[in-house]
């Protein structure tokens, strides 16, 4: 009984959220100063034809360095996790 009630409430909430989301106008942000700046000056300032890449690797290059570091740390973690398994006699690689 309680589970059914919970499900109904969840359904109503999800439906309401979906209804509210359809009212939002897509593609018309309130403030578009930043976007306009990137679109107008991105190619001229960075010399890159791909605006997305010019933002990711030039205007927000430090953020990309962080992403690359996250991947590096993830690989480090996986390597640590499987370290014991192939340090034994069976899987001695290279």
């Amino acid at each position: 009984m309680r589970t059914a009630l919970f499900c109904v409430i969840l359904l109503v909430l999800a439906g309401g959220l979906l209804l509210m989301a359809t009212d939002l106008s897509f593609g018309h942000p309130l403030r578009s100063d930043m976007d306009d700046y990137f679109i107008r000056h991105g190619q001229y300032q960075t010399g890159v034809n791909n605006i997305v890449t010019s933002i990711v690797f030039d205007f927000r290059g430090f953020d990309t360095l962080g992403e690359a570091t996250v991947l590096f740390t993830a690989v480090l973690g996986v390597g640590l996790m499987f370290r014991k398994l192939h340090s034994g006699e069976e899987y001695e690689n290279d």
Binding site: T46, G47, F57, D58, G61, T64
Partner: peptide, 12 residues
Amino acid sequence: TGGLVPLLNVGV
């Protein structure tokens, strides 16, 4: 073209 961007792309 692109200056540093292609180099960073290759690195990543």
